[in-house]
Write a protein that binds this DNA or RNA. Structure first.
Lengths: 343, 343
DNA sequence: TGTCCCGATGTAAACGTTTTCATGCGCGCC
DNA sequence: GGCGCGCATGAAAACGTTTACATCGGGACA
């Protein structure tokens, strides 16, 4: 059915070896045979079978990408960065998403054996230990945003600590004393790191952390909206600023405040985290922490390629931290002289 | 290096055939041998080599996805829909993006031969004819948002015509007479269809199309921002509404208007197209055309699976149109009694 | 003129599976 | 008690490549 190298060889009156040599330029071939082979190959629309090639060469020219989800601009940007780097190296991407638990990751990983040269795994909700058992032995792996395991060749992570610190410092400098926080998903590594960062930074700034002002969230716009609603409805100390653990939730909170008639930043300041592309387009534009998500992906891919090409690098776990930088836009201002009214 | 089925067979004192039978449950095996094989396989962390499996089985359990780009929520949603459907069928996704011309598509497609069972191609900037030559012969293909070619097993497209029509009708009903338009990329199939739809709907509504109010765009937020700036600066008839060919550009326009001190929708109404998730979170929330992008992807994948499993379906080109529905939010209102002032 | 070497090509093995075919063995049946 | 049948298993071919090795001329050199 499909045309194979044998078909080309037959029609060009040469052996399959010669065809292979022509197509891969792997050995000198007389010019006229070369031309003849190429002609026949083009005529038959021949393209080599990837599986066979991979099997023989022991190199798939593909990277496996395991993601917890695909919803929202974050993953879009991440994948874009990875793809860009992979494409430069002539590698394809085998993508598999919505793997939230160790078992899901394990299944996805097994399905990739033999079809990828290395793995990029982002599983922020899976514990380091479970991840270690889910990862394969022979396949170089780079972990994203998760506590690094021994199995991995490298780990790339966001500097959540300094990111959260700089936000709190900024808010404190503006005069805010009461800063609410919206968490990410409970077992998510980034989420917990940012919560820890928030607490530590608040302490260091000499500001109190009111537990009633730490709201649950799930990294989605709707989660942020819900949390902001809860905040508006809640009794107790009135926050003058809200720090959301990611931009999506900050955007959701913005809507909730807008609906409630709040003026931002006059009534309350809002900060996000990640700097997804949309952050500068919402109203007011969102003060946030720039993470360069596409760079995060690209760096992870680059590290994986290094582990693949440089056998010496094996065995040593390389860690890389993507810096986090405060981006001041218009969603923050000084605290109001009197706290906003609940309605 | 990597553990193979042969290793398992040797340690379990059986032939490779038996191991294969156990792992695939493809033939009855005595219970004790079965247990022994499974035990050894687990012990060795064996997982079958995908390339070898694909080669022998002539089935890759993977779908190729070719996209023009990965930037923004549109592709993220599309990919999510595809992934969801593929995962249900136990298929992985081989993704390759940033293919804008026929040659790029052709290269990507060739790289996928033998590693995927079918192809999902979105190449809105490639002409139908070039696409036909770029697509492979033996591989079932579903085309997204592009004029269908004969080679394809199916095509899924957005109902751009009725989508644009309903927007113009909505604006006309509100009393708008002068409606500006921001185009997508010049050679993009969706973009041109939406422009055509805008023109036709305006004509049918008895409204004039001022060529000076048809602005160039590129489907990005920044493009929309630039176009809106141009609109503000331009002389000539003052539009009371702006229709952007996609949501990203509408969001960009929103920012430009906001920066210029316009009140939306009092000074000008804004409409988008696609209903990306963020559309309901911008301020004001965006009136747009709901396309259910994830469904678009999922349907495309479903059609591909049908072509794969049902050989009868081959040869007939199935077309499916994803409906477009007006979503009224807060970015539209009646036209101002006097046109907004340029500043 | 014989030897050596090198360039062009062919032959066949190998990659790790799945699957067809063959084989052996126990058991029921006449 | 011999015959046939079906079940469990093994041997080996096949999938479509790449590549190590063999082969064959022909030219350079002694």
């Amino acid at each position: 059915m499909a045309v194979t190298i044998t078909d080309v060889a037959r029609l060009a009156n040469v052996s399959v070896a010669t065809v292979s040599r022509v197509l891969n330029a792997s050995a000198p071939v007389r010019e006229d045979t070369r031309a003849r082979v190429l002609e026949v190959a083009r005529e038959l629309h021949f393209s080599p079978n990837g599986a066979a090639r991979t099997l023989k060469r022991r190199q798939a020219s593909a990277l496996g990408v395991i993601l917890p989800d695909l919803y929202g601009e974050f993953f879009s940007e991440l994948l874009r960065g990875i793809d860009q780097e992979a494409q430069r190296a002539g590698h394809a991407l085998l993508v598999s998403s919505s793997h939230h638990d160790a078992h899901g990751v394990s299944v996805a990983v097994r399905a990739m054996r033999g079809r990828v040269d290395g793995l990029l795994v982002m599983a922020p909700e899976v514990s380091s230990a479970s991840l270690a058992t889910a990862l394969p032995d022979g396949l170089p792996t780079v972990i994203l945003n998760t506590a690094a395991t021994k199995h991995a060749a490298a780990a790339v992570m966001v500097d959540n600590m300094s990111g959260t610190r700089v936000v709190v410092q900024h808010l404190a400098a503006l005069g805010h004393q009461t800063v609410a926080f919206i968490c990410g998903p409970p077992r998510n590594a980034d989420a917990t790191a940012r919560l820890r960062g928030y607490r530590a930074a608040m302490r260091d700034a000499g500001l109190p952390v009111h537990e009633s002002l730490v709201f649950r969230g799930d990294f989605t716009e709707d989660g942020g909206w819900q949390a902001a609603r809860a905040m508006i409805a809640t009794a107790g100390p009135r926050p003058t600023a809200l720090f959301a653990a990611n931009d999506a939730m900050a955007v959701g909170a913005l809507l909730a405040f807008h609906e409630a008639g709040f003026d931002i930043p006059r009534d309350i300041s809002v900060v996000g985290f990640d700097d997804i592309p949309i952050a500068r387009y919402v109203t007011p534009s969102l003060t946030t922490v720039r993470v360069a998500i596409d760079v995060l992906g690209a760096r992870a891919a680059a590290l994986l390629f290094r582990a693949l090409t440089d056998p010496l690098a094996r065995g040593t776990v390389h860690r890389e931290v993507i810096p986090a930088e405060l981006i001041v836009r218009h969603s923050c201002g000084p605290p109001p002289t009197t706290a906003p009214q609940t309605r």
